[in-house]
């Protein structure tokens, strides 16, 4: 009986130790960082709902969300196309396209994004428009009045700052996604290309049917993260006076002097959007790793 008691006590102690260990691992694996961010968002939401100064800031800044999202989506789509073409140029055996692609990538990566946005929006775009206008005048003189008049009607005032922002972001980000695509293409073993070419596929056919599908799959998470980065960097276009969330928050803070309200609300807006997007990226990543390979 006494023996039984002591084993029962020992069992109980062992059990308690076990559950303590379980608790410890559970505490260690709990995403505290996510809970903290959630708390920040929840607190801000509470303030927006209950504090008049916060709700005013929110309802003002909210107007910029559609501009931010539109600029991000369009620029991102264009930058992917630029990136794919440039990435293909980077791995091309053609020395001309290889050099042009590398020139563009290194140029963009060597200039701060803020500066390249200024440069593209205020120097490159007006320059290109003037050039087209000049070309239009020349073509009109040569008798090609149709296209000539169309081109010479190009006017810098007609190119809105939002459009310039999209062009600037696309060109800047194209260089970054080019590097992602290049890495993706180079991650596919050489044997895949050799096998395809040995069957009589052309280089382009092999790229399209064999290399790119595998390359894109390999870099899908990186492409997703690029979208998140683009969403954040789209705030830079506020320097062009484009009325995205950042610009509206700056204006609001400037004339209301409610800096904490404006910038807390703004930060939490970006945070909620990027958090949701990064969860989506994680989901994609998980699906890739379980789906095949």
């Amino acid at each position: 009986m006494a023996l039984n008691d002591s084993t029962a006590v020992a069992d109980r102690i062992a059990l308690r130790e076990l559950s303590r260990q379980r608790l410890r691992t559970r505490l260690a694996s709990f995403p505290w960082w996510l809970a903290s961010i959630g708390l920040i968002i929840a607190t801000t939401l509470y303030l927006i709902a209950n504090a008049p100064s916060f709700s005013e800031a929110f309802s003002t800044i909210r107007a910029g969300i559609s501009v931010t999202l539109t600029i991000t989506l369009i620029s991102y789509a264009i930058s992917l196309v630029i990136g794919l073409v440039t990435g293909l140029g980077r791995v091309s055996k053609n020395i001309g396209s290889q050099n042009i692609a590398t020139f563009y990538v290194e140029l963009m990566r060597g200039i701060p994004m803020l500066v390249s946005i200024f440069f593209i929006a205020l120097v490159l775009v007006p320059g290109a428009v003037d050039l087209l206008g000049g070309l239009g005048v020349k073509l009109s003189e040569l008798g090609l009045t149709g296209i000539g008049e169309f081109l010479s009607s190009a006017d810098n005032r007609a190119v809105s700052m939002s459009l310039r922002a999209v062009i600037a972001l696309s060109i800047t980000y194209g260089a970054y996604s080019a590097e992602i695509f290049r890495a993706g293409i180079q991650s596919v073993p050489v044997g895949q290309m050799e096998a395809a070419r040995s069957q009589g596929l052309s280089y382009g056919q092999a790229m399209r049917h064999i290399i790119l599908p595998q390359a894109v799959r390999n870099v899908l998470p990186a492409i997703g993260n690029d979208f998140i980065a683009m969403l954040k960097d789209s705030s830079l276009v506020s320097v062009l006076a484009v009325r995205d969330v950042t610009q509206i928050a700056r204006l609001y803070a400037g004339h209301s002097f409610r800096f904490p309200e404006a910038y807390t609300t703004l930060s939490v807006m970006y945070l909620s959007m990027t958090l949701m997007l990064s969860l989506v990226v994680k989901l994609i990543e998980k699906r890739i790793s379980t789906n095949g390979q």
């Binding site: 073993p189 044997g191 895949q192 096998a195 395809a196 064999i210 599908p213 799959r217 095949g292």
Partner: peptide, 8 residues
Amino acid sequence: QSFNLYAH
């Protein structure tokens, strides 16, 4: 030698 089947 290494088969080189299209992996995807």
